Amino acid sequence: MELVHFLDNSLFDENAEKTFLAHKKIMKESLPEADVQHVGSTAIPNSLTKGDLDIQVRVISGQFFEAVDSLSALYELNEGSIKTDRFRAFKDDSTIPPLGVQLTVIGSEHDFFWKFRDVLLRNDHYRKEYDELKKKYEGKAMDDYRKAKNEFFQRLMKTPEYKKL
């Protein structure tokens, strides 16, 4: 059973930003039209993180399969994630911090990572609530944490702050 652990994201700030900028540059070389964004907890000051870096790559529908091919040449497909014609997940565990890449079609049902980041950045009470959830699952089963995290974000999607984005 995989256990989840969290740390203050300030421990990862410098490496996360450096890794993000390096990989954004690489991605933009092969996908110049893509919108490449730093998402996840390392993008949100004062939050707890598992210590990984998340990047969302947003493309228009007609560029999706080209983007899949480009990112497949750079990263490993994340086999533990869903795979659709509007979403793919990739990873690189060799980077510092480890990297997760979410490729989404702009405006699709999976184009929400940047919205979650923005809601948490603009509304500290949601960030604190999310951190409290993380504290509750510290050292516990990753699957249980992921279920609770999903419930939190499903509820966040119903808020006026999220709907404005």
Rank of each mutant, 00 (worst) to 15 (best):
I106R: 12
D124P: 12
E17W: 06
L7R: 14
L71F: 08
V4S: 09
A16W: 03
Y126H: 03
T19S: 03
D93L: 15
L120K: 10
S41F: 07
I82W: 10
K28E: 08
F112H: 02
D93W: 10
F90H: 06
A16E: 09
F12P: 04
P160M: 05
D35T: 05
E138G: 00
N9P: 05
G80L: 09
K50V: 00
K163W: 00
S41M: 13
D118H: 08
Q56N: 09
L3F: 10
E79M: 14
F87L: 11
H38R: 10
A73D: 14
M27L: 14
V119L: 02
I106Q: 08
W114N: 03
F152S: 11
S108D: 09
Y145D: 10
K128F: 12
H23A: 01
K135A: 11
Q56P: 03
L121H: 12
A89K: 14
K115Y: 00
L3I: 07
K134H: 09
K50S: 02
A141F: 09
F112A: 00
G62R: 14
K147T: 15
E161F: 07
P45N: 04
D35E: 08
E132S: 06
Y75P: 12
E129A: 14
P45G: 05
T159S: 04
F116D: 00
L3Q: 10
L21I: 06
G40C: 08
L7G: 14
E14T: 08
P97T: 10
L103Y: 10
E66D: 14
Q63I: 05
A148E: 15
D124E: 15
H110S: 07
K24D: 03
I26W: 03
Y162T: 06
A148I: 14
T95D: 07
N123W: 10
I96L: 11
G80R: 14
D131L: 08
F6T: 06
I82V: 13
L77D: 04
H38A: 07
N46G: 04
D8V: 00
F116L: 00
K147D: 13
F65C: 02
H110Q: 07
P97C: 03
N46E: 12
S47N: 00
Q63R: 14
K25T: 11
Y130R: 09
N150V: 00
G80V: 11
K164D: 03
L48S: 04
I26A: 11
L48Y: 09
F90T: 05
L7N: 14
R127A: 08
A141R: 15
I106C: 02
K158P: 10
P98E: 11
K83F: 03
V119P: 03
I82M: 10
E29Y: 05
A73R: 05
Y162C: 02
P98C: 04
G80H: 15
N78F: 12
W114Q: 06
M27C: 14
F112L: 06
